[in-house]
């Protein structure tokens, strides 16, 4: 499973979100490759990813992609991330 975490610049919030997503995956005992990306390259990366994690503000900018786009409200809360990942994976 490939997951892309997206922010505006690819150096700050997406990196924090990637770290907490990896923590959430470990807690769920799931394997996944998580990459951080800025909004400029996110569309391209979303093509090969299964899931995109980002904020409400940026989810609109990503637009129509085949990957499932999940909005995370609190990037520091690995429980929220884990819960939404579990729901998405059904």
């Amino acid at each position: 499973m490939k997951i892309v975490t997206v922010c505006g610049m690819g150096i700050g919030t997406s990196v924090l979100l990637k770290m907490n997503t990896e923590k959430a995956l470990r807690a769920l005992d799931l394997d996944g490759e998580v990459e951080a990306a800025d909004i400029g390259v996110a569309r391209g990366m979303a093509r090969s990813a299964q899931i995109v994690l980002t904020s409400a503000e940026l989810a609109e900018e990503i637009g129509d992609v085949s990957a499932q786009v999940i909005v995370i409200d609190n990037f520091t809360d690995s429980e929220e991330i884990g819960r939404k990942l579990s729901e998405a994976l059904g």
């Binding site: 505006g8 700050g12 979100l17 909004i39 503000e57 940026l58 990037f75 520091t76």
Partner: peptide, 9 residues
């Protein structure tokens, strides 16, 4: 430009 997405928690 990108809105307050930096308010992450």
């Amino acid at each position: 430009e990108l809105g307050p997405y930096i308010v992450i928690a």
